[in-house]
Design a protein around this nucleic acid. Structure first.
Length: 540
RNA sequence: GAGGUUGUAGCUCAGUCGGUAGAGCAACGGACUUUUAAUCCGUAGGUCCUGGGUUCGAGUCCCAGCAACCUCACCA
């Protein structure tokens, strides 16, 4: 980046305050209430609140609510939530005089819905485990707290001490005895029936999407569980997590264009990493026999429903393993992750169903090629003609590269899977060891699910001379940005010191999460996907 | 990078043939101590994405730009 570009970037107006002009009706109404709360002697920005129970746990105690008759006898109440036809109001009348008694509870959450009925207010609050209704009666909480409740707005964060209880309609409710106030929301929330619909706003204002869109918070919590499960599976298998550098002097390990950045003090260009591979293999050389990194990589490529410029990648290396070791591990990582989020191995994806029951199918590259195209994979002329019919670029290209173009166009999209595609042509896999008895075949697999490449694994090449030669061949044949790898002399030097034979595996975490959470785009599983800045001409 | 679609109140959306800018939710005032998207009466709220053009007159038609989404390409 030039100094001029840098200054331009730094001087861009912040989008945080797009409307410095007069506050609108909503903001002034909310600021009025804010002032009233302060006048009541209450800190509108709250403080520590101990001994609170999560709403989900409170709801689980519904069974403890009893009916206490005037004679002092306790009576079980019917399962209101389990019987939608039950008229709870009628049931209460039949019991004669008495009242409901439930456990004392303390909750806090954001106000997502309010209903006012004279000297009575119903307020639905929500925390990250669920939602519950508060019954706030002037008589029950007293004048001061009721005045506080009159200054509640949708979006405020409040707390309550009260009794777990049911209203006459049977709704599980906290009968408020004491109110607390934690935060005033100055901005109004989205529309209460539809929430945020505009995908642009949902991504820019993810905090609103998380709070007000059904299933969004759950989906991101599931992502966390999946990642935790992966770490746990690898830890149990004896793998060691490390953190490699994200700033590289050579962007290697994958075929992708890197982001370029600059170190000022060293006055040196740097690349954001495009893969984890080469540093992890250096650690195999260093004796870390089972090693992995689960972290962000950056690729300066296009954006699509399946691509974000930064995404999360898992790479695993196991000394004395091979690609078959990695296949078993991949299956375990994925099935453990599914166990971690529950719901079984039949997962819906869009209008389809994906069966993750292990073992996943294993088919050779050539076998799938033949099945799908009807052309013999070693028939160079036939493959070339087939590629021509598809309109693919074939001039001056290696027969295996042409074959792979055909494979990517005709086979990959149709692999509903999960299916391990195994035994790739060696010429398109420069970092892969060949089969001992079939040197034209690389010991590699890719896992396809729903037409998406989810995992990629090799028996790693540890012959330094062959590795260097293959790097060179790759670099010779193509313009630099097309090449499968860039020459990394230090990596070759590491190999010359001796790397044990090993299996290596890469898994695209975002795509795996997409499949396991039934998310149609990668942006649905990335909290803050890359977006252009909001300009002054943009809406909102 | 190419093509298509969309952009109107805080949010969700209408807006006919080019002729005074609309609704619901949210907000404000009022009624209501068992509401469930509470209800009822009343009030306020607009850079129609931005900039040009055509026209007596543009939310609407034309051109350019911005942003998002979809498809394709690069890529995983």
């Amino acid at each position: 980046m030039t100094a001029v570009e840098h200054r331009r970037l730094m001087s861009q107006p912040s989008p945080a305050n797009p409307k410095p002009d007069q506050p609108g009706v909503h903001e002034s109404a909310r600021r009025d209430k804010l002032r009233k709360i302060i006048r009541m002697g209450i800190d509108p920005w709250g403080s520590r609140f101990d001994q609170r129970t999560h709403i989900g746990d409170i709801r689980a105690r519904a069974g403890e609510i009893k009916f206490r008759s005037e004679a002092g006898q306790y009576l079980e109440i019917p399962d209101v939530d389990g019987q939608p036809d039950l008229d709870f109001r009628q049931w209460l009348q039949q019991q004669g005089p008495g009242q409901l008694e439930g456990p004392a509870v303390r909750a806090a959450g954001r106000i997502v819905l309010q209903r006012k009925a004279g000297k009575l207010r119903f307020v639905d609050i929500q925390d990250w485990t669920g939602k519950i209704q508060l019954f706030i009666g002037k008589q029950q909480v007293g004048d001061a707290d009721f005045e506080l409740a009159e200054n509640f707005d949708l979006g405020d964060i409040v707390g309550v001490d009260g009794q777990l209880w049911r209203t006459k309609t049977g709704e599980l409710t906290i009968l408020a005895e004491k109110l607390h106030f934690f935060c005033k929301s100055i901005e109004p929330p989205p529309e209460k029936h539809h929430g945020l619909q505009d995908p642009e706003l949902r991504q820019r204002m993810r905090y609103l999407d998380l709070t007000y869109s059904d299933g969004v918070l759950q989906r991101f919590l599931q992502r966390t569980r999946i990642v935790q499960s992966i770490r746990q599976t690898l830890a149990q298998a004896g793998f060691c997590e490390i953190e490699g550098p994200t700033l590289h002097t050579i962007a290697g390990g994958a075929a992708a264009r890197p982001f370029l950045t600059h170190h000022n003090a060293l006055d040196m260009p740097l690349f954001m990493r495009i893969a984890l591979e080469l540093h992890l293999k250096r650690l195999l050389v260093g004796g870390i026999e089972r090693v992995y990194e689960l972290g962000r990589v950056y690729r300066n490529e296009g954006i699509s429903p399946r691509h974000n410029p930064e995404f999360t990648m898992l790479e695993v290396y196991q000394a004395f393993g091979n690609y078959e070791t990695m296949m078993d591990l991949t299956e375990r990582i994925i099935t453990d992750a599914i166990d971690a989020i529950g719901g079984g191995y039949q997962l819906p994806y869009g209008d389809q169903q994906i069966d993750f029951t292990p073992p996943f199918a294993r088919k050779t590259y050539d076998q799938l090629f033949q099945e799908s195209t009807g052309v013999a994979p070693d028939d160079h002329v036939g493959v070339r003609e087939y590629a021509q019919r598809l309109g693919l670029e074939i001039a001056n290209r290696h027969p295996d590269v042409i074959k792979n173009e055909v494979f990517e166009h005709q086979v990959e999209d149709r692999l509903q899977g999960p299916v391990f595609v195994i035994d790739y042509p060696a010429s398109i896999c420069p970092l892969t060891k060949r089969k001992a008895d079939q040197p034209q075949i690389a010991e590699r697999f890719e896992l396809f699910i729903h037409g998406m490449e989810i995992a990629n694994a090799y028996t790693e090449l540890n012959d330094p001379d062959l590795q260097e030669e293959l790097f060179k061949t790759q670099l010779d044949g193509m313009p630099e940005e097309d090449s499968m790898a860039r020459m990394d002399h230090d990596f070759i030097r590491a190999l010359r010191h001796g790397m044990p034979p090993a299996g290596g595996l890469g898994i695209g975490i975002d795509r795996l999460v997409m499949l396991l959470t039934n998310s149609p785009t990668i942006r649905d599983v990335i909290l803050f996907p890359l977006m252009r800045p909001e300009s002054s001409s943009a809406k909102s």
